[in-house]
């Protein structure tokens, strides 16, 4: 502390202070510069985590369901969070339909904060790509998964999350999925 004070007191005469000040600002400049080009869209790192354990209900039968009964070991799943009131879900639905037809992935639906009748109509209209559907009536299961909302999808293998997709899927992401599961 003492030295620091002496330093500041005499600093006007010493040449070190300007250099120090300049270095200080240069480093701030560099940090800002780098920050400018980093993406500041926040995505938490959930990849390679175990899937959460939860209780839910089956969409059709309304029976209670344990998460361990939905996801089996050694299999690949795509968990898709959807809802009939969500517009982007409509867009990605055809992709899910085609994914169901030509791949190994089992697609599981999580019906998010939805009305059962609307949801059924939605599936009647656009087809049902899901092997199983379970219900998340108050949105809390989605939070267990670390999701933000609808639509969102998780690629799962061996009860581990391989990758998380926020927002609607598109062709590119589907192709990426195909590569990932190989």
């Amino acid at each position: 502390m003492e030295e620091l004070l002496v330093f500041t007191k005499n600093s006007m005469k010493i040449k070190i202070l300007p250099i120090f000040v300049i270095l200080f600002f240069v480093s701030i400049f560099l940090a800002f510069y780098k920050g400018l080009y980093d993406s500041n869209i926040y995505t938490p790192d959930v990849n390679r985590k175990n899937i959460p354990v939860f209780q839910t209900k089956n969409f059709y039968s309304g029976k209670n369901l344990e998460s361990s009964n939905i996801f089996e070991v050694d299999k690949t799943y795509l968990l898709n969070i959807w809802s009939s009131w969500c517009l982007p879900c409509r867009q990605e639905h055809s992709l899910l339909m085609s994914l169901k037809l030509n791949s190994e992935i089992n697609i599981i639906g999580m019906n998010y904060k939805d009305n059962k009748k609307n949801a059924k109509n939605f599936l009647k209209e656009l087809g049902n790509p899901y092997k199983d559907i379970f219900v998340d009536s108050d949105g809390t299961i989605a939070i267990e998964w670390g999701a933000y909302g609808v639509p969102e999808s998780f690629l799962i293998y061996n009860n581990k999350i391989i990758k998380k997709y926020i927002g609607p899927l598109n062709e590119e992401l589907i192709n990426e999925m195909r590569i990932l599961i190989k």
Binding site: Y42, K113, G139, T140, A142, I143, Y148, G149
Partner: peptide, 23 residues
């Protein structure tokens, strides 16, 4: 509230925040 801009979960009425409150 992660899907909002600069709001806390308490202040927000988004779907995400509502579910979080329940949880």
């Amino acid at each position: 509230c992660l899907i909002c801009q600069g709001q806390s979960v308490y202040d927000s009425d988004s779907e995400f925040a509502n579910s979080l409150k329940i949880l």
